[in-house]
Design a protein around this nucleic acid. Structure first.
Lengths: 335, 335
DNA sequence: ATGAAAGCGCTAACAA
DNA sequence: TTGTTAGCGCTTTCAT
């Protein structure tokens, strides 16, 4: 059975297709009785409107593009889940694309999203560049940056204050009486999230008159970090590590384990992001919590406001962060 | 500047829109020179074809629907990444939806995918039910099941042999001289992946004349499993645990830690899925590796074959599994 | 409150 | 090799 079109429904209900469209979209008042006939016809033919035709005619596709470096990295999937949940509430669907953080690919993807006629884009990138801005402007599509800092605030975005968050974490450690604190993170250049956190570390150390130069960078994966921290520890005895993410914090934890150092008694460790990993470690990891799911949810909600011309108070929403203390910084407790 | 249409390009190049369409789709031979003129016009106007109009006219949208219980669960994101990568190779995009494993939502989503006119669907579900099959048949869309068992092989699928995999894992433990082996898993009913693995456990135990009744079920999350295993261990001293997934295996590991039992010396532990977690534990976890990325990649490749009427050898592809031995079953090694 | 008719931007016969 | 012409299934004026 070939699937029914709006025309079939119209005939079945004895009305014009315009009327069917009206009840479908609730776009004008239709007499109760007529409406019922239409609804019956729809049910009888198990009619479902063709979203593609709809999109062509109305120029709104009810789909939004999500451009992310890699869904399978860390907690990105949680973020995407947040997007999708809110998108669903507003009857949107998402087209998901991975860019691997490549500039050319990111730019190309924005173009592809245009071809697909998405109503909006949620964009995540390790680092925003001039070419991005140019592309966004050319594209003429509402775009929200998510977990991607735009120093000049040209594009609507949702973020946390990474610099302040790191600062808070270091201060937290300092207030425990520690002074020899190291930062471990990726090799992020200026403008990246890692760089922001690194800055926050330095800010706090300086503020308390401590040496802020114990910054170690490596690739951000677990294995590389593990090796890196181990070699750090064989040279010097740090009292604490602030890691730029939980995976690296876990690596630090295990590096200590491998070097026979007790956490938290000999070394304290603080991670970043509050991924599930933190509670799956022994001792559990203290971490700076980022609301990953909310990140996506808020971004998507923001986008719906943009799309519906709803008012909003700011172009750059900052989500709160929070230090969650767990075993890796609690010497007194038995785990 | 309003964006250009195929008609604008045609005029600019001094040809008909049909010719432009031809060079765009390479669907017929066009004279070199004309082609060049068209290409120039396209570049000049920075024309990009409207995929929605294209979809309506051609009835192929170059998008495929991915229905998954929850992207943010475990390694699902890796699987989705596999799908997206292969999809891209074949110029497809994916619409991602989370069903939370709810039957009504899953069915509804297939309908929505129809509305969106996707060319195909990759479907994942904890358990296939008659309603699913009915829906798939009604939908008239090519569908591939992924990591979802269809006992009656009615729908094309890609899977691993979970029963055999669990059996292999238990045998692996038995050959180490262990006899008091327990299985921990979720409360999966008949037909679920968990149930298959549970069966495999029982198969192997029976085969070696051992008692296969040490089956413990709990919710599949880390925290619940942890409590569950701890209470198991306070009643009886198991020599080994085979967990239905890595998260539960990690919970078992930490339960042992909490109960002062040494892994692997007092208790051995084997997980399932080879998620990143396994290498982020101390000792590292032995696990039954499932190629998560490949899962998605193979499913998507399979779908492209279906869509292009390419030949394929079987409707039910079985991916290989493999036991990866790590510290949690290696007593002799110092980690 | 409802219908008629003109597109939306493209593909795909069918002609030439 | 290229152009003409119908649609694809809907939304959206504009009439009535």
């Amino acid at each position: 059975m070939m699937s029914a079109t709006i025309y079939d429904v119209a005939r079945e209900a004895g009305v014009s297709m315009a009327t069917v469209s009206r009840v479908l979209n609730d776009t004008a008042v239709v007499k109760e009785e007529t409406k019922k006939r239409v609804l019956d016809a729809i049910a009888k033919l198990s009619y479902r409107p063709n979203a593609v035709a709809r999109g062509l005619a109305s120029k709104r596709t009810k789909t939004i593009g999500v451009i992310v470096p890699d869904v399978s990295a860390g907690f990105m999937a949680e973020l995407v889940r947040g997007i999708e949940d809110v998108a669903r509430m507003y009857s949107y669907h998402i087209i998901l694309c991975n860019s691997d953080g490549s500039l050319t690919r990111e730019i190309d993807l924005v173009g592809t999203m245009w071809e697909k006629q998405v109503d909006g884009i949620i964009f995540m990138s390790p680092r925003l560049q001039p070419e991005h801005i140019q592309t966004f402007e050319d594209a003429q599509i509402p775009i929200i940056l998510c977990r991607t800092d735009d120093p000049e605030k040209r594009i609507p975005s949702v973020n946390i204050n990474n610099r302040l968050a790191a600062q808070d974490a270091v201060e937290f450690l300092i207030k425990k009486g520690l002074t020899h604190i190291a930062f471990i993170g990726g090799v992020g250049e200026e403008g990246t999230l890692t760089a922001e956190r690194r800055q926050g570390y330095a800010d706090a150390m300086r503020q308390y008159g401590l040496d802020p130069s114990f910054v170690f960078t490596s690739r951000e994966d677990y294995a590389t970090s593990l090796v890196s921290v181990r070699s750090q520890l064989s040279i010097d005895r740090y009292q604490a590590f602030l890691a730029s993410n939980d995976e690296m914090a876990l690596a630090a934890l295990h590096a200590c384990y491998d070097m026979q150092l007790k956490v938290p008694d000999d070394v304290m460790i603080v991670g970043f992001d509050n991924t599930k990993l933190t509670q799956m470690a022994r001792p559990e990891l203290t971490t700076v919590a980022q609301p990953m799911y909310d990140y996506g949810a808020v971004a998507m909600r923001f986008l719906t406001k943009l799309l519906n011309d709803e008012p909003f108070s700011t172009y750059t929403v900052i989500l709160p962060h929070q230090i969650l203390e767990r075993g890796s910084t609690k010497p007194s407790l038995i785990l």
